[in-house]
Simulated scan of single mutants.
Amino acid sequence: MVAKLNDKDVDFLKTYLKTYELKLFNKLPTYEQKHCINVARDVETNCNKRKLQSINLIKVALLHDIGKIYSTMNPIDKAIMVILHKITNGKIRAFNKLKNVNMYYNHGEIGCNLLKQYGYDDRFLFLIKNHHNNSIIDDIELNILKECDNKN
């Protein structure tokens, strides 16, 4: 709720995002921006430990929640959704006609559809779309992204 970006965050963003991507990123609420930066930093660290190329995956991490630019959820609404998801074992998903439920479960697909118009390749879009898909287990980049997202 009180998240703020510091100069290091801004420099990190400028290292990985182009001007039009920064404009999109800045449409996210500040607490979501900070979350994405934290995920991206963890992705960078994780990739470095594994000696994996990380530039594209860091950009994915920065933009993985971009579908949430259409959301009106505040941190309390988000916390409620997390709790409802856990106590219903995901059965709350059946109420996806409710805006917050739809956004919680489908922001990856919403973000993927948004980013398609900017010409991202299929792999980039796949990672954005599936960053909460637990049925895909044999994909190292997706697993790193999910692990770092869950940690933050």
Rank of each mutant, 00 (worst) to 15 (best):
D65W: 00
N100I: 02
N102H: 08
M73H: 05
A94M: 10
L125W: 00
E44K: 10
Q33A: 05
G119S: 12
L17N: 02
N133E: 15
F124W: 09
C47Q: 07
E141N: 15
S71H: 04
N102Q: 11
H131L: 04
Q53I: 11
Q117F: 06
M73V: 04
L145V: 03
L84K: 14
L98A: 09
I136V: 13
T45F: 04
I80S: 07
Y16M: 11
T72V: 09
N46P: 00
N6Q: 05
I69T: 10
N100V: 03
E21Q: 15
K97I: 09
N6Y: 03
E109H: 10
F25R: 08
N46I: 02
N143D: 14
K78E: 11
Y20V: 10
I37D: 04
L13H: 00
K78D: 12
K49A: 10
D121K: 08
Q53T: 11
I136K: 08
G108E: 05
K91P: 00
G90E: 11
L22F: 03
D42C: 09
A61T: 05
V2P: 00
F12I: 13
A3W: 04
E109Q: 11
F124K: 10
N74C: 08
V2G: 08
I37G: 06
T88M: 09
N46M: 10
F124N: 10
L98Q: 15
K4A: 13
K4M: 14
L84N: 12
V39P: 00
I92L: 14
H35M: 02
R41T: 02
I137T: 15
Y70G: 06
L125M: 08
L127F: 01
D149C: 01
S135E: 13
N96R: 14
R123N: 13
V39Q: 00
M81A: 07
D77K: 07
I55V: 13
L52H: 09
H107D: 04
L63G: 03
I55P: 00
H85I: 00
K86G: 06
G119C: 08
N152Q: 14
L114S: 07
I92G: 08
K146S: 01
Y104N: 10
N130L: 03
T30K: 13
N113Q: 12
L5G: 01
C36E: 03
K8S: 15
Q53R: 15
Q117L: 09
R93I: 07
M73N: 15
Y104F: 15
I87W: 09
D65N: 14
K146H: 02
R41Q: 14
L142V: 02
K4T: 12
E21F: 01
L127Y: 09
Y16H: 13
Y104P: 01
T88S: 15
F25T: 06
F25H: 03
K14D: 11
D7R: 13
V2K: 15
K68G: 01
L98Y: 05
L5W: 02
I140D: 13
P75I: 14
K27S: 05
I69A: 09
P75Q: 14
Y118T: 07
N152G: 03
H132A: 06
V82W: 04
N134Q: 11
I83Q: 11
I80E: 13
I83W: 06
T72Q: 12
Q33N: 06
D121S: 07
Q53Y: 05
S54N: 13
N89W: 05
H64M: 02
L57Q: 06
T30E: 10
T15N: 13
K97R: 10
N48M: 12
